[in-house]
């Protein structure tokens, strides 16, 4: 792993002084012979916007699943505020203050938008086993849910069924579901995947606004490098299961290794797409 030296001093100050919220120590995950994540050590500092990028198959999502608890690592540790949560079950992590999203839209499709978010609020309350009280009694959950829907701009669609929303709005609703219980750290796995290109800046802008205003820590896994360049404080580049580089966006953009691994891949990818496109054009 090589770190990059060129970091703006103010940011360097913030990066060095704010405490580490989430930490991965020598994290490794093997699927049979495949080593998807190879001894990754990572420090996520409080109130920063930390992006993890890398080409397809770099191990981003696996790392993400290790951090969020969906997968258990083969070896290594995950620490949250200094506490070892490597083997903590998923629901415990939510109570500790970790909120996560999925690459694929993962919601309660047949419930209303409001109910989706309300369930997210209720989860961390202490009323889950009160089976003898009407739900309407717990107005504070609904209020909080409405407040969050306002924040993500869905309050006029709160009583629609979640599955009837367009993809972009479902993504926003998911963001609301993560925000609702006010977690300390937001883990977002490609929140823009499946969205129309013109909607992406809006969602990313929304995430950034929320991060700044409510002083959250955001870990964003993203395939598309352009998306995260302008909003991130720190970028970690993954390549073939390992951390290739880490630093401020400007430094990452200037890094030759990253360009080779990433942009080279992307150029190749573009060329492949172009070829496929031409082929299909000729075919028709």
């Amino acid at each position: 792993m090589r770190r990059i030296g060129i970091i703006p001093s103010g940011l360097l100050y913030r990066m060095m002084t704010s405490p580490v919220v989430l930490e991965a120590r020598g994290l490794r995950k093997e699927f049979g012979a495949l080593r998807a994540v190879n001894d990754v050590t990572l420090e996520i500092r409080a109130q920063t916007f930390h992006s993890i990028i890398g080409p397809n198959g770099a191990g981003k999502t696996t790392l993400f699943n290790l951090l969020s608890g969906t997968l258990e690592p083969t070896s290594g540790q995950v620490l949250f505020n200094g506490q070892d949560i490597t083997h903590a079950p998923v629901h415990r992590r939510a109570h500790l203050g970790l909120g996560r999203s999925y690459q694929i839209t993962n919601i309660f499709p047949n419930l209303t938008v409001l109910e989706n978010v309300r369930l997210a609020v209720q989860a961390l309350g202490s009323d889950n086993f009160k089976f003898w009280s009407a739900n309407a009694k717990f107005a504070r959950y609904t209020e909080r849910a409405r407040q969050v829907l306002e924040q993500v701009g869905l309050s006029d669609r709160s009583l629609r069924l979640a599955r009837t929303l367009p993809q972009g709005d479902q993504r926003k609703m998911e963001l609301g579901m993560i925000l609702a219980p006010a977690p300390e750290i937001l883990l977002l796995d490609e929140p823009t995947s499946g969205m129309a290109t013109e909607q992406i800046p809006e969602l990313i802008g929304l995430i950034q606004t929320i991060q700044r205003e409510s002083r959250k820590t955001v870990v964003l896994v993203e395939h598309n490098m352009d998306v995260v360049m302008s909003v991130s404080d720190t970028i970690t580049v993954m390549h073939q299961g390992s951390v290739l580089a880490e630093g401020a966006p400007a430094a990452i953009a200037a890094n030759v290794q990253v360009q080779d691994a990433y942009l080279g891949h992307s150029l190749w990818h573009d060329a492949l797409q172009q070829a496929q496109h031409e082929q299909s054009a000729r075919g028709s």
Binding site: T70, A94, R100, N106, L111, L119, A120, P181
Partner: peptide
């Protein structure tokens, strides 16, 4: 919620 999407319910903290 469990009927609709159990995995999601668990990640929410249930």
């Amino acid at each position: 919620a469990i009927r609709e999407n159990e995995e999601r319910a668990r990640v929410l903290g249930y």
